[in-house]
C-alpha cells in the first residue's frame, strides 16, 4: 500500500505576539528573527494517521511531499524521522506566490507522477492561513473521493474507514480507495521519533521536482495561476477602551451597564 502525506512548513504558530510582524506594504509576514519555521501540526497528525495504517498493513510505503522553499526539507525530514520512507520536495521559483488552488493542482500532479498511490493524507488545514482547501482540492483534481477532519482512519481491504469529527458528534464513513483524507488533532499526538530513525532520516536524500518534472505549465501554478488575490494584510491594533460602571450596589452597576449597552445599540 502506497500512502502519501502532504506536509507544509509554516511560520511557527507559537511565535510570541511581540515577535510577530507584518509588512503591510508587501502584504507579507516578516519572518520572526530567530524563530524557525515548523511543520504544520495537523500535517504531523496526517503523517501519524498514514504511519498507523502502514504499520497495520505490514507492508506499506509512505511518501511525504511538500511544496515550499528549500527550507521545507526540514519538514520532510521530520516526517521521514517519524517513519516515512521517501520524501519529495516541489520547489522552484514558479511555485511561489500561489494559493490553495495552485497548491492542490501541483500536489495532485505529483501524486499522479508517483502513480500507484492508494491514499493521500493532509492536515485538516495548515496552521498559518487555516484555509482547509488543499486536501479537497487534490481530491477534486484527481477525481477521488475524500473525507475531511478525520479522527481515526483504518484500511479495510481496498477501502478506508474514516471516523469524522462533526460539529455535534462523530460520523463513520467507508470509501473505496484511492482517496484523500484530511486529519484533525483529535487523532492524537504524533509519535516521537526514535533516534535511530532521526539519523536514518538525516542520511536520506529528498527528491526535488520542478514544474517541468510534473509537466506543469508556468501559467498553472504559483502567482501566475492563483485565483485568490490578497487585498490587505494587517495586524489589528492591540488595546481596548475600558469604561468602569459606577454604582453603589452591584444592582446599580448592572443597570448602568444595561443602559450603556442599549445606548451603544448592542442590546
Amino acid at each position: 500500500m502506497h500512502l502519501v502525506v502532504c506536509a507544509k512548513q509554516i511560520p511557527d504558530p507559537e511565535t510570541p505576539p511581540a515577535a510577530f510582524r507584518i509588512d503591510s506594504a508587501k502584504n507579507e509576514v516578516i519572518p520572526a528573527q530567530g524563530i524557525a519555521p515548523v511543520l504544520s501540526p495537523y500535517d504531523a497528525q496526517a503523517a501519524e494517521a498514514a504511519l498507523r495504517i502502514k504499520e497495520q498493513s505490514g507492508d506499506g510505503k509512505v511518501t511525504v511531499i511538500s511544496l515550499g522553499k528549500e527550507s521545507a526539507q526540514a519538514a520532510i525530514k521530520q516526517v521521514l524521522a517519524m517513519g516515512a520512507d521517501e520524501g519529495v520536495l516541489l520547489s522552484a521559483d514558479e511555485f511561489q506566490g500561489g494559493d490553495s488552488y495552485t497548491t492542490a493542482h501541483a500536489l495532485a500532479a505529483a501524486v499522479k507522477k508517483l502513480g500507484d498511490v492508494d491514499a493521500v493524507f493532509c492536515g485538516r488545514q495548515a496552521a498559518d492561513w487555516d484555509m482547509g482547501q488543499v486536501g479537497v482540492g487534490i481530491a477534486e483534481e484527481l477525481g477521488w473521493p475524500s473525507a475531511i477532519i478525520a479522527k481515526d482512519v483504518k484500511a479495510d481491504g481496498g477501502s478506508f474507514v474514516v471516523q469524522r469529527v462533526l460539529a455535534d458528534g462523530f460520523e463513520t464513513v467507508k470509501m473505496a480507495g484511492p482517496a484523500v483524507i484530511t486529519v484533525s488533532n483529535e487523532l492524537g499526538d504524533p509519535r516521537y521519533p526514535k533516534l535511530q530513525q532521526i539519523m536514518q532520516a538525516a542520511r536520506k536524500t529528498v527528491t526535488t521536482w520542478t514544474p517541468g518534472d510534473l509537466g506543469l505549465q508556468p501559467g498553472e501554478i504559483g502567482a501566475a495561476g492563483a485565483r485568490l488575490k490578497l487585498e490587505k494584510l494587517f495586524q489589528p491594533p492591540a488595546g481596548g477602551d475600558v469604561q468602569i460602571m459606577e454604582g453603589d450596589t452591584p444592582a446599580d452597576q448592572a443597570k448602568a451597564l444595561a443602559r450603556a449597552l442599549r445606548d451603544a445599540k448592542i442590546i
Binding site: 511557527d12 507559537e14 510570541p16 505576539p17 511581540a18 515577535a19 530567530g34 524563530i35 524557525a36 515548523v38 499526538d189 509519535r191 516521537y192 521519533p193 526514535k194 533516534l195 535511530q196
Partner: peptide, 29 residues
C-alpha cells in the same frame, strides 16, 4: 531507542528541538 515518552515531556523535548527552549506556548520573548 524506544521513543516512549510521556506526552508533556515530549512536548518539552520537541519544543527545545524546534524553538530552543522547553516552555511550550510561552507568550514571552
Amino acid at each position: 531507542d524506544e521513543a516512549r515518552v510521556p506526552a508533556t515531556a515530549q512536548a518539552a523535548l520537541e519544543n527545545m528541538e524546534v524553538r530552543g527552549h522547553p516552555w511550550r506556548g510561552t507568550a514571552l520573548t
